[in-house]
Computed example of a mutant assay.
Amino acid sequence: MSLTLPPKVTDRAFARLAEINEASGEAKALRVAVAGGGCSGFQYEIKLDDPAADDLVLEGWGQKVLVDTVSLPFLANATIDFSEELIGARFVIDNPNATSSCGCGTSFSI
């Protein structure tokens, strides 16, 4: 039986969120959610948002990352990171629960 842990957020992801908020002059949280759809059955939704009452709030660098209670089981033990590559810079999810994913990295199946 594996231990189910909430997702982790890397320092790189918190630092990028801090840069975004500083540039915009706002103090928004980063919401990471899982929704049905995408080419593999589920897809990640990543957006700036305000906390809701039942969100799991992960804090670091003075920033907040939010996960709603419905998405939490799909993101157990996952890592939320920020990646800068030739194809672009984006927040990425390393999800050990996903059995397959699509090339774009935003869709997965369990």
Rank of each mutant, 00 (worst) to 15 (best):
F42Y: 04
V92H: 09
V70K: 04
Q63S: 07
G41D: 02
A27G: 13
I80N: 04
L75V: 05
D11Y: 12
A98D: 01
A78S: 06
N21E: 05
R90S: 09
E19Q: 09
A98P: 10
R12P: 08
D94K: 09
A78T: 01
E85L: 09
T99H: 12
E26R: 14
S83I: 05
R31F: 06
D49F: 05
K47R: 12
N97K: 08
L48E: 07
I80T: 13
D81M: 03
D11N: 10
K64M: 02
I87S: 14
L58N: 01
A53P: 09
L58E: 08
K28V: 10
F14P: 01
G41T: 05
T99Y: 07
D68T: 00
E26Q: 12
G60Y: 05
L58F: 00
E59K: 10
E45H: 13
S71N: 05
L30R: 00
G60V: 13
E84I: 03
I93R: 02
I46V: 13
G62N: 11
E26D: 12
K47M: 09
A53N: 15
G41W: 02
A27T: 12
S71M: 02
G88R: 05
I20R: 06
D54F: 01
K47N: 10
L86Q: 14
D81T: 05
V70H: 13
G62F: 04
K28W: 04
V92L: 08
W61K: 11
N95K: 03
A52V: 12
R12S: 03
L86E: 14
A76L: 12
S100Q: 15
T10C: 07
A23I: 10
R31V: 04
G38M: 12
F91V: 01
A35G: 13
E19I: 05
V57E: 10
A76R: 15
T10S: 04
D54W: 05
G25Q: 13
Q63E: 11
E85N: 05
D11L: 08
L30T: 11
A98H: 13
I80D: 10
A15H: 07
L48H: 13
I87K: 15
R90Y: 13
Q43V: 14
E59T: 08
V34I: 10
E19W: 03
N77Q: 14
L86K: 15
D81S: 13
E85R: 08
K64Q: 02
W61H: 06
Y44N: 07
D49I: 09
I80S: 07
V32F: 01
G37S: 03
R12W: 02
G60F: 02
D94H: 04
V67M: 00
